[in-house]
Design a protein around this nucleic acid. Sequence first.
DNA 1: CTTTCGATGATCT
DNA 2: GATCATCGAAAGG
Length: 163
Amino acid sequence: MDGVGGTIVEVEAYDHEDPAAHGYRGRTARNASMFGPPGHAYVYRSYGIHWCLNLVCEPEGVANAVLVRALEPTRGLDAMRERRGLDDVRLLCSGPGRLTQALAITREHDGLPLDRPPFELRARPAPAAVVVGPRIGITRAVDLPWRYGLAGSRFVSRPFPRA
DNA sequence: CTTTCGATGATCT
DNA sequence: GATCATCGAAAGG
């Protein structure tokens, strides 16, 4: 993504039968890309201020997606700092609205494939240790433990509950 | 440390 | 008219 990026350290799952998901009540103009082919982006405006990035999951035609909530920044740190108006690496991408600002993701990226520029999504070289917990900032299906984080990462948007 | 609250606009009812 | 998968600043302990 334009020379900036990092390692995904926190995501949340949104299933098509999940009352908290945008796709739950069927296809609309906003969530159309959620119903499109897997491996593409679903980007929407949040609270009129922020953008949020989802990775559309299979199967095609079913509204399953994963919200990217935090990255550990690895490339283009200075560009991110400039966009965010911050120096603290820890705060550059530790939140769904923050990482889209740091990466300059907007509605223009909605529906784009994640394996081609400007995106460049790659698999992690080795399996990661993962921690789970309840999702953040939602009002329905609050108890589903569908928030996943990289164990021990200091770059998650908020700490995970202690085991 | 914690809680509260305003910003801001598209989307949905 | 109400809701919202957020953030950051401000105020209170």
